[in-house]
Amino acid sequence: MSQPQDMMADMQDGTPTTVLAIPATRPRRRKPVWRRLLLSPSAIALIIIVLLAAFAGVIAPYGEAQINPVAALEPPSFAHLMGTDTFGRDIFSRVLYGGRLSLMIGCSAAAIGATIGVLVGMAAGYFGGRIDSIAMRIIDVLLAFPGTLLAIVIVAVLGPNLLNLVLAVGIASVPGYARLVRSLSLSIRESDYVTAARATGVRSWTIIFRHVFPNLRNSVIVYATLNIATAILNAAGLGFLGLGSKPPTAEWGLMVADGRETLEIAWWITAFPGLSILVTTLVIYSFGETLTAALDPRQSRQ
């Protein structure tokens, strides 16, 4: 069926001339941000690590604390992929169970640090004045100590156990969140939409959670992802010093410490848990960089 726009008659020479309407080309659809993120190599590697840890009870050929004195200090083999320790416990099984615990510690500590740090940072950045001054002086005191040293002090005060370890690592990460969120809140509070909301009588905390937080959420997500890797390292360091989980719990830092005395004759006791810490933190850091690129609106338009 012809359309009036598709066919016109040239009245000068009497020869009908057909003019076809050229359809507009559709813009090429780009993959959604989250699909590109999940298909990235770092995301796939992280998913594999999480699945191995989550299903450790199914994948591990032996129990977490299953002792077999007959097989003590066996090198890596088909029966024991990563060898055994001085009690005959399978290192591969313990690495899997330790991954579950280390990831739990990292995520829990990051959640504690993010919750406290974001609230303190938003309050200091939005309200300013005396609230900002007091909050930042407290943060400055915490920043005077390195993160690991601050965690050691907190564990020493509260007592060495797993719960206190998570609290210590989480509190040690609060200053980083507070500094980041405060700097972002200072610029967001001067935005026109925040000024308009304030002029219409909207309550301050409503403005903070409805307008300020959504505009700094992506930055907090990226920082929290990177902070999980830092929390795993700090927790492993405290476990190595004996300030975390107690034997026979499978925890990577504690497993590295267990192999110190037999390092010359049984290197695998220390090597494989240490390698697990290294690989996991590198994968999380790489995923954090990928997440930064995915959440950056300038790069997401490309």
Rank of each mutant, 00 (worst) to 15 (best):
S2Q: 12
S2Y: 13
Q3H: 11
Q5D: 15
Q5L: 15
D10Q: 10
Q12I: 13
P16R: 07
P16Y: 12
T17A: 12
T17Q: 13
R28K: 13
V33S: 09
V33T: 13
L37M: 08
L46G: 00
L46W: 03
I48R: 08
V50Y: 04
L51F: 14
V58G: 06
G63Q: 13
A65G: 09
P69E: 06
A71T: 04
A71L: 09
A71D: 14
L73V: 09
F78H: 03
F78S: 11
A79L: 13
H80I: 11
M82Y: 09
T84K: 10
D85F: 15
T86K: 07
T86S: 13
T86Q: 13
R89C: 04
R89I: 06
R89M: 07
F92W: 14
S93M: 04
R94L: 06
Y97P: 15
R100D: 02
I105W: 03
G106T: 07
A109F: 01
A110V: 10
G113N: 05
A114Q: 05
I116H: 10
G117K: 07
A124K: 05
Y126L: 12
G129W: 08
R130E: 03
I131S: 14
I131A: 15
M136L: 15
I139E: 03
I139R: 05
L142E: 09
P146Y: 06
G147T: 08
G159L: 10
N161A: 10
L162W: 04
L163E: 09
V166W: 00
L167R: 00
I171M: 12
A172E: 04
Y177S: 01
A178S: 11
L186E: 07
S187Y: 02
A197Y: 03
T200L: 11
R203H: 14
S204M: 08
T206E: 10
F209D: 01
F209Q: 05
R210N: 14
N215G: 07
R217P: 00
S219M: 02
Y223A: 01
T225P: 00
A229S: 13
T230K: 07
L233W: 01
N234V: 04
L238Q: 08
L238D: 03
L238F: 12
G239D: 04
S245K: 00
E251Q: 10
E251P: 14
G259W: 08
E261T: 13
E261I: 12
T262A: 09
T262G: 03
L263C: 02
A266H: 06
A271D: 00
A271K: 00
P273W: 02
G274K: 05
L275Q: 00
L275D: 03
S276W: 02
L278N: 05
T281M: 12
V283W: 01
Y285N: 15
S286C: 13
T292Y: 00
T292A: 07
T292Q: 13
A293M: 08
A294N: 06
P297H: 05
S300N: 14
